[in-house]
């Protein structure tokens, strides 16, 4: 009950302040945007924490490209850009985004920004390991394993084929002579059926 009363008081304060402040805010924003100023929300807490206003740099492709290479440190396994535009409860990705924007505005290159984060957070902040040293194994082993398996398979099959061909060349005394023309007809018919 105590919490409900507190909630009621909160709403009352929000509604009252909305009524009082609204004309002021509306005047202020109307000068900027000439848009309709919306009402204060009856229950702002239901839409999560208040958000920073979106600016043009938030959608800058260069910023997005950097953030897509860096993992959010909240433990969500998403990159910073995806996390900050998806998980609106996360407080880490907006903070990391601000850092990226800050360094970008200071004129640092993408490479410098990424190196800064790797130095501070470790290699795990990269969404994919750098293709060097031991990490090369990560990139190359699947392809090499598959290529090796393919070669082994091809070698094994050709050896088997030789064995089959050799056994097929052994004349069977009991078998009647085969008419090549009939065999060709049979093969054509089989091709037709099996295709």
């Amino acid at each position: 009950m105590r919490r409900s009363r507190r909630q009621f008081l909160g709403w009352t304060v929000a509604a009252t302040s909305g009524m009082v402040l609204r004309p002021l805010v509306a005047q202020d924003v109307a000068a900027d945007t000439a848009q309709v100023q919306g009402d204060f929300l009856r229950d702002p807490s239901s839409v999560g924490r208040l958000r920073d206003t979106v600016t043009a740099i938030d959608n800058d492709p260069a910023i997005i490209a950097i953030e897509r290479q860096l993992r959010c440190t909240c433990g969500c396994t998403l990159d910073i850009y995806t996390c900050r535009t998806t998980d609106f409860t996360c407080t880490y990705s907006p903070a990391l985004h601000k850092e990226v924007v800050g360094m970008f505005e200071q004129g640092k290159s993408a490479e410098e920004i990424i190196i800064f984060f790797v130095d501070r957070e470790g290699e795990k902040i990269l969404m994919a390991p750098v293709a060097e040293g031991f990490n090369m194994a990560g990139y190359l082993v699947p392809g090499l394993a598959m290529a090796t398996a393919g070669l082994v398979l091809a070698a094994w099959l050709s050896r088997r084929r030789v064995a089959v061909a050799a056994s097929a060349n052994v004349p069977d005394a009991a078998a009647p002579p085969v008419d090549p023309e009939a065999m060709a007809r049979l093969q054509r018919a089989l091709d037709e059926v099996e295709s």
Binding site: R71, D79, K124, M127, A128, F134, Y139, P142
Partner: peptide, 20 residues
């Protein structure tokens, strides 16, 4: 494996899987 061999934690995310 990387942590066991190098003692370094790494992330293997979508860019890796897409590439391979």
């Amino acid at each position: 494996l990387s942590e066991a061999v190098r003692g370094t934690k790494i992330t293997v995310g979508p860019p890796f899987f897409n590439r391979v």
